[in-house]
Design a protein around this nucleic acid. Structure first.
Lengths: 134, 134
DNA sequence: CGGTATCCCCTCAGATACTG
DNA sequence: CAGTATCTGAGGGGATACCG
């Protein structure tokens, strides 16, 4: 009856891995934008607003490396490069949206909890009066 | 109208937020362990193997602040502190497991893609044999 | 046992400049 | 247009020492 001891290690290694992969500053944004349609480099850059050239490049390289996006170069002048989600990338979008839905639904609860915690610690660095009834 | 222009910003802001929150080095591991049962501080520390006192503390504080875990102090000697997932924390586990399942299922595909990419770039820093035309 | 405080390293990420 | 190269600052994260 101890499902409490079920294998946590392989699962959370995998979770941690994908989360590390996808949990950086820009990856999710890029994947979400590409979830709509394929986009060019500067198009993405303009869309994301705040990302630097360097970070967009390395984010896209990482996603390409892991098989989440394809990079298509048109050797025209000026050059044109299209980025598009692969099947794997679109597949990833599913659990990602799942987490996104959760995040949207529970945003409020989290910020409330946070406010409560902060209040208790701003006023309560010196605790002792909150528990008058204690 | 243009579904290609549908609201990506609020969704991916929320996704990015939760992912940043949960995407650090240890949070997922801690949440997964606590998903099984409540645990004491050093119990977690031993279980996770590699985490420093400092990081375990700050990870747990962060989770407590956001309402994902409760911290229960027993003022005995020696002291005893139990950490346990809240409802919100257990709730979070659902989409997290979803992502975990995805990660486990697709681990292979990702590492294959990565191997392909790396091979193409180790051997192919100088490309040109893929197209025999050269 | 369960922390906090301090130091320090190392990577991430931004700004800037240059290239094909 | 689509990058690469280099420098720099901020902060995540580890080791160590100390406290209640």
């Amino acid at each position: 009856m101890k499902p409490s001891h079920f294998e946590v290690t392989p699962a959370c290694t995998a979770v941690h891995h994908i989360l590390t992969r996808v949990g950086d500053k820009w990856t999710v944004l890029v994947v979400n934008y590409l979830g709509n349609r394929s986009m060019r480099f500067n198009e993405l850059k303009r869309a994301i607003n705040g990302i630097s050239q360097k970070m967009l490049t390395s984010t896209l390289r990482g996603l390409e490396r892991d098989g989440f996006v394809t990079r298509t170069v048109y050797p025209t002048i000026p050059p044109r490069v299209d980025y598009e989600l692969t099947d794997l990338g679109r597949d990833l979008l599913v659990p990602l949206r799942g987490l996104g839905d959760w995040a949207i639904k529970n945003e409020q609860r989290v910020s409330e909890a946070r406010a409560r915690f902060d209040a208790a610690h701003d006023a309560g660095v010196r605790p002792g009066f909150a528990d008058a009834a204690e």
